[in-house]
């Protein structure tokens, strides 16, 4: 090992990173998203996607869903650090592979081309509940809901068929069955 000239220790063991989905219930107040996102950037955590909206207008609660990767130790820290924030009520985290939880993202595809190309696009999207939101003779806006990697795949697949613009959300999550988080 080369001689260290640093006053700090040298990183050694690298643990395996895993993908987790965090669901955070927060007071819907000014700056709350900045606090959550700032915590991630400030402590060097990664954000793959982010979805946030108010879910309870009376209690003024917003629900933030964050997809992140990190070692188990980092995931544990993210949860504890989030829980410390004053406007945070509750934090739940799930492994991406968790079969008990549904993860979904939505994408809007704008396809420009002849009718047969648009039909091909719709056909390709068949598995992902395609809905046509807008249609002209030469274009269509198609909405699908799917997993992140499925949308990635469709995004590539539709390019040669006239896809010119993609807009997509971050993942949102919900447990299966009657039980709720926590």
């Amino acid at each position: 090992m080369p001689k260290s000239k640093s006053a700090y220790s040298i990183p050694t063991k690298k643990q395996k990173s895993e993908t987790y989905i965090f669901v955070v219930w927060v007071d819907n107040e000014a700056g709350v998203l900045a606090r959550v996102v700032g915590l991630f950037s400030g402590r060097g955590y990664n954000i793959e996607s982010l979805a946030v909206a108010e879910v309870d207008a009376i209690k003024n609660i917003s629900r933030i869903t964050i997809v992140t990767t990190g070692t188990l130790q980092v995931i544990d820290q993210i949860k504890l650090q989030l829980t410390k924030l004053v406007p945070v009520h509750k934090v739940a985290e799930f492994k991406r592979e968790d079969k008990g939880v549904i993860f979904k993202e939505m994408a809007l595809f704008k396809v420009v081309g002849k009718r047969n190309k648009i039909d091909k696009c719709l056909n390709a999207c068949k598995k992902f509940n395609p809905v046509i939101l807008d249609e002209t003779k030469t274009s269509a806006v198609i909405q699908i809901t799917a997993l992140r990697r499925e949308i990635d795949k469709m995004n590539k697949k539709l390019k040669p068929l006239g896809l010119i613009s993609t807009s997509r959300t971050g993942a949102v999550a919900m447990t299966r069955g009657a039980k709720i988080f926590n």
Partner: peptide, 23 residues
């Protein structure tokens, strides 16, 4: 050095801040 920190001990941590534990 973290890897060689107190290698043979059982460790107990008493703290008011849960995020300090196992950090």
């Amino acid at each position: 050095k973290i890897d060689e920190f107190s290698p043979n001990s059982k460790k107990v941590h008493i703290d008011i801040d849960p995020s300090s534990i196992n950090k």
